[in-house]
Design a protein around this nucleic acid. Structure first.
Lengths: 147, 147
DNA sequence: TTAACTGCAAATGCTTTGCAGGCGG
DNA sequence: CCGCCTGCAAAGCATTTGCAGTTAA
């Protein structure tokens, strides 16, 4: 493997777990899922692997409150997260040009945007079950997410 | 004091430190500043006080990366933070109607916005020292901030 | 008086690490 | 074969908490 990294059994398993995870598991959860496939894996290895992958841009670390880091694969495209404060459920959404807006703001302050963080904490609205407003086009749901 | 709270010497000192702090100190730093005024204060008390004040909406807890929580008084008006990834310096800025934008996005997803988090991590641009663009009006610097 | 508060140190919870043995390339 | 990996348990850190002695109201 490139850069002197070894493809060990544990890493193979963790990689598989990650590619099959379309939510935002924390290390404990990844450890649980990996253990099902191979019970010779330790949490320490999960921590080490997850860190390795994050440093190489494969994974992205998130903080949705609650103290533990949560992870998602980095190749999922630009999106943000809305956390349901009641259930803890995470809803992903995209917003066209939001990053561009932030870049502009940053530039105006005399800086160059390196990265940013945006999380919405919200409460589910009583479902009015109405027709879609035309504004829905701007903010589109992404079709996945179950933490 | 209201709600059975006592105004102790320690709290008086910590309150004073907070009102005089116009940056975003972490607990360690608050402890240091308070100790100067009264060396009979323990970190535990600072932690407890800071938590108390946060629960009562007097203080706001921030996470600018780096592992420790940072605090600022809640009465400073709506603003966001840009963290200089090089120096760690925090620049505050306001952006008209950003909260409103986020509220709209949230509503479109069928939620009611409870709170949100937005942080920009950026690198200082080589100072071009040019005239102000008219866009500067939109994103205005706030006149304070030295972490 | 007495419930709230404080200092101290022990405890927590997540994450990292030192070490000695394993194992992939 | 050699250096990268792993499990285990100990160590780190920021923060919280149990306890017994204070103190504000």
């Amino acid at each position: 493997m490139e850069r002197g990294l070894k493809m060990t059994g544990q890493r193979r398993v963790i990689a598989r777990v990650l590619s099959e995870s379309h939510d935002h598991p924390d290390v404990e959860e990844l450890y649980r899922r990996a253990s099902v496939l191979d019970d010779r894996i330790s949490v320490a290895t999960v921590y080490r692997t997850v860190r390795l992958l994050e440093e190489n841009g494969i994974l992205e670390r998130r903080d949705f409150g609650g103290g533990r880091a949560r992870y998602e694969t980095a190749d999922e495209g630009d999106h943000y997260h809305l956390i349901d404060v009641e259930s803890g459920q995470v809803v992903e959404f995209t917003h066209a040009d939001h990053a561009e807006l932030l870049r502009r703001i940053t530039a105006e302050l005399g800086f160059e945007l390196v990265s940013h963080r945006l999380e919405l904490f919200a409460r589910r609205l009583p479902d009015v079950s109405q027709e879609q407003t035309d504004q829905q086009a701007q903010t589109e749901r992404k079709g996945r997410s179950r933490p």
